[in-house]
Amino acid sequence: MIAREWKAKCPKKHEEGFISYLYETGVKDTSATKGFIGAQIFNRDTDSGNEVEITLITYWEDLECIKAFSGESIDIAKLYPEDEQYELKPDDYVLHYKVRENSWV
């Protein structure tokens, strides 16, 4: 299993709106792709207190399944045109991890 991590920061005033929007774009698109296993969204306040950091982690059977979603350049983040309305500071790249342990309590 592969975990794909993407992060963005946005003003605190857009936090709830962007998380809802993220479900409608990134999570919806990934979940429609063969080999998608699941997703998690994390958020936390930044040190400035004016922004939040939002992390989307998606889980995949393998790298080929990720290519079906992202295209050949799997390390480049898939961004959406409407992202701008949330004043995002998105990471342009994503990280991939081999999941070594997956134990849910």
Rank of each mutant, 00 (worst) to 15 (best):
S48V: 03
N102F: 06
I57A: 04
P81C: 07
T30A: 11
K12S: 07
I37G: 05
S20L: 08
E24C: 08
Q40G: 13
Y93W: 01
I41N: 07
K34N: 15
V99A: 02
H96L: 10
Q40A: 13
D45V: 03
G17F: 12
V94E: 11
E5C: 04
E51W: 13
S73A: 09
V52K: 09
V27C: 11
Y86I: 00
D29S: 00
M1D: 10
I37W: 06
N43V: 00
Y97S: 04
V94N: 09
T25Q: 13
V105Y: 12
L63T: 13
F69Q: 05
H96S: 08
T58N: 09
E15A: 02
V27N: 12
F36Y: 06
D91I: 00
L95H: 15
K67I: 00
E15M: 03
V27E: 15
D29M: 00
L88V: 12
V99K: 02
I74D: 07
L22M: 14
P81S: 08
E84T: 00
K98Q: 14
Y80G: 03
C65W: 10
P11N: 05
S73F: 12
F42V: 00
K78W: 00
C10H: 12
A3M: 04
T33D: 14
I37F: 06
W104R: 06
T33S: 11
E5V: 10
K9F: 12
D83H: 06
F36T: 02
L88I: 13
I2A: 07
A32Y: 15
I76Y: 06
E53I: 02
D83I: 00
K67T: 00
A77K: 02
V52L: 04
G35T: 06
L22V: 05
K67Q: 08
R100M: 06
A32M: 12
Y80H: 07
P90M: 07
I54Y: 09
T25E: 14
E87C: 11
Y23P: 03
C65V: 10
G35M: 05
G26A: 14
D92Y: 09
K78I: 00
T46N: 14
S20V: 01
I76V: 05
E82W: 03
A3C: 02
A77W: 01
V94D: 11
K89I: 15
F18L: 00
T58G: 08
Q40S: 14
L88R: 11
S20E: 15
E24N: 15
